[in-house]
Write a protein that binds this DNA or RNA. Structure first.
Lengths: 153, 153
DNA sequence: CATAATATGGTACAAGATAACGTTGCTGCG
DNA sequence: CGCAGCAACGTTATCTTGTACCATATTATG
């Protein structure tokens, strides 16, 4: 084991889990033990988690399709996001999440902070529309130095 | 062979190649035959190209490190960009390109249009800074329907 | 209960990427 | 010349990431 450090308090984890149950139920989907376990692993992480790392934490028995299927399901409900530039996954911190997300990824500590960019997304959509392009989904991933790491340096 | 269709006119290809030579020279780097060939393949593509597809077009003799090294070099000079959500690469259409790029990717035809979003990037940087996060590099990849495909539908 | 739909298990492999090391060829210098 | 130093490229092997496909189990529903 390494340093114990959780991204969320026990209270907040419970809240996220409750919220996930609610989202699942209202989508008419099942929040099965496997899905619960994977989601639980994700909210316990500090940083974006790799599929194969999650797989290992499932006990070493599980095979790749298991974790990919489960992550796909959780993403479909907006409970989990994929960070393309890292080939990794994070639990969504705000229950009912829009499909278009913004992540600020710290190069130093590796954490990914979900972010609300105000008008940036709207502006992008409008600018693209003026060009005749109709945006369905936007992925924004910015890397840099987070507040905590800047302070530490 | 499939449909012949090039993203650029011969004149424009020449311009891009000249520009690449210039960028290379001014960076004190060599624009070798291999690098030239890979860049040429990229500007002949309609859509983002996969590393292994490019590799195959090098004659079938080349091995993976060859193409990845070459792409890495071209990206270092800003002549090529990686599209994270596709694991693919595109030639930069504007010679001296900023590191932070925006792509509009058409779900229908697969083409990726490099884009200038006006203030969207600045706004994002400022919003992040208010949060204490200092952005170094931003990736924006939007998917949707391009003007040509919208017209065709 | 029967049956369909959903969820999970598992094999095998495809696709994407890199580490490590060897080879070549050039450039500069004693 | 002879060789050190370096950049580019070649080669092998391996690692990581992801999926197609089939089997089985579980759950919802007529």
């Amino acid at each position: 084991m390494h340093l114990m450090a959780h991204a969320h308090t026990a209270r907040e984890k419970t809240r996220l889990m409750r919220e996930a149950e609610r989202v699942c139920a209202s989508a008419g989907e099942q929040f099965t033990p496997l899905r619960r376990q994977v989601f639980d692993l994700l909210i316990a992480e500090h940083a974006p988690a790799k599929a194969y790392d999650l797989l290992a934490k499932l006990g070493g028995e599980a095979k790749p399709p298991t974790i990919y299927r489960t992550l796909e399901f959780l993403m479909k409900l907006g409970l989990v996001h994929r960070i393309e530039s890292l080939n990794a996954f994070v639990a969504c911190e705000v229950g009912a999440c829009d499909r278009s997300t913004i992540f600020l990824i710290c190069d130093t500590c590796g954490r990914a902070e979900e972010f609300d960019a105000g008008h940036a997304l709207v502006d992008l959509g409008e600018a693209a529309a003026r060009d005749g392009f109709q945006i369905k989904r936007t992925m924004i991933e910015a890397t840099g130095l987070c507040a905590a790491c800047k302070k530490a340096a």
